[in-house]
Design a protein around this nucleic acid. Sequence first.
DNA 1: CGAACACTTGACTAGAGTCAATGTGTGTGG
DNA 2: CCACACACATTGACTCTAGTCAAGTGTTCG
Lengths: 265, 265
Amino acid sequence: MSVLATAPERRRLVQKLSSLRTLTEDERRVLLGLPMRVRNYGADADIVSDGDSPHECCLVLTGFVCRYKMLGDGRRQILSFHTPGDMPDLQSLYLDVMDHSLGTLVETTAAFIEHGAIRGIMRKHPGIAEAFSRDMLVDAAIFREWMTGLGRRDARERIAHLLCEMFLRSRAVGLARETGFSFPVTQADIGDALGLSTVHVNRVLQELRRDGLVRGNFSNLAILDWPGLLAAGDFDPTYLHQRPETAGGIGAVGRALEGAAHPAH
Amino acid sequence: MSVLATAPERRRLVQKLSSLRTLTEDERRVLLGLPMRVRNYGADADIVSDGDSPHECCLVLTGFVCRYKMLGDGRRQILSFHTPGDMPDLQSLYLDVMDHSLGTLVETTAAFIEHGAIRGIMRKHPGIAEAFSRDMLVDAAIFREWMTGLGRRDARERIAHLLCEMFLRSRAVGLARETGFSFPVTQADIGDALGLSTVHVNRVLQELRRDGLVRGNFSNLAILDWPGLLAAGDFDPTYLHQRPETAGGIGAVGRALEGAAHPAH
DNA sequence: CGAACACTTGACTAGAGTCAATGTGTGTGG
DNA sequence: CCACACACATTGACTCTAGTCAAGTGTTCG
């Protein structure tokens, strides 16, 4: 009934929460001991659907998922992307009915934790409760940043900005190399996230390549010019609310980021 | 030092939270007794600024405020609108630094409640804690809906949708008439909220008037055809997560809303 | 009365969408 | 090992929604 996830996969949750708040040894142990039910999904499968009333929260162990809304006529808006270590539907702890869906982008392993178990450790460990609360609020902060892009940035800025964000978030859970990372989505997915057509995403990505900022495709992206990408996306990482020790400090990229705190443009 | 807000103004907070969760008599009393410092603002004044680290939360007593982000070159994205009864920066309880600003749209009275006082009653009254948590998460749910509009809806749908939302939210705190409500913003503000230019907002609003859906301007809006407006905005109120007793049931509008649950379009 | 501000209107432009065809790479069954 | 299918990526030609610029028209208010 309660299959155990392997240790390294569980540890990403601790790593993720640690990027938001310092956790004690005790808190880490409790998190790693949470009872969870594990399940595998193929690509493009729904994990939770709009209208559902879940009694458990999902933790991404491997793969990549997104939250999205469908409009009647087939238009889709992707609301967020989630790496392993993320719990994309924590809000279901407090909101009974899902106002959007959660689906996989590639083959994915997810763990499910009963609401009751989460409420229990939140009650017993205020530090964990605070980390979860922060996580939900950083989630909202990311929404705000995306809204700003959707409303007021052009296609080039939006794409560059998203690449900056996903790189930093992947890095915070140990899933990025210094020189790039894997963002396993299609150009159509990016379009649905950024309010653009597939064709336009393709053209703008080529422009970013031509300008020497990146190489390759989303699923295997090399970042050639990090300061340039930060500038192209008008990117300021404050909204991710990552603890500075976690965000910076890793070699060249960390330094480049600091250097871009007061962009020249 | 601790000026008291008048009773009816404070009561809107209770009314607002009641639309998200049933409150006991005891909980209501505690909320009404919260110590708060009151301050008045003119129009277009900042209450909290991007980068601040507030030690208190803001409660709107009268007037109208919005949260927004500025881009370097003067572009502005409005992230949310807030009526009296709203606490627009509750998230500052958990996120130390503001990633956006909070400002007035018209003359506004705001009350400020110390983080410590809020944490205190949340600890002592789990029901209130849950109401606040819900409020923060409904906030995020509204962001998601706006993102969907910004990314995938055209100008007409976005404007109609926003009117539906603001009407229902105003009504939940007793600030709407059956036939309309006041949304004290300029067409430029609406543009900054919906990612449109002022000129285009003007043209589309005229179209909505021509089609007999509304009359007047935002600051004094008559809703002539509620089902029509719901359809034009592709509006589904689920994301507001209002308790049904609060959301529906008030005369014609409530019935019209129910009738539109399965829109014909 | 006139300055300030919001709303309106018209003419023109441009960023992004649509449609449709053509690569390109991978995988699979025969 | 090849042919084919399929899913993505890429390209070109054309269209359109919404932006920009600039000039009125109210309205409010000192």
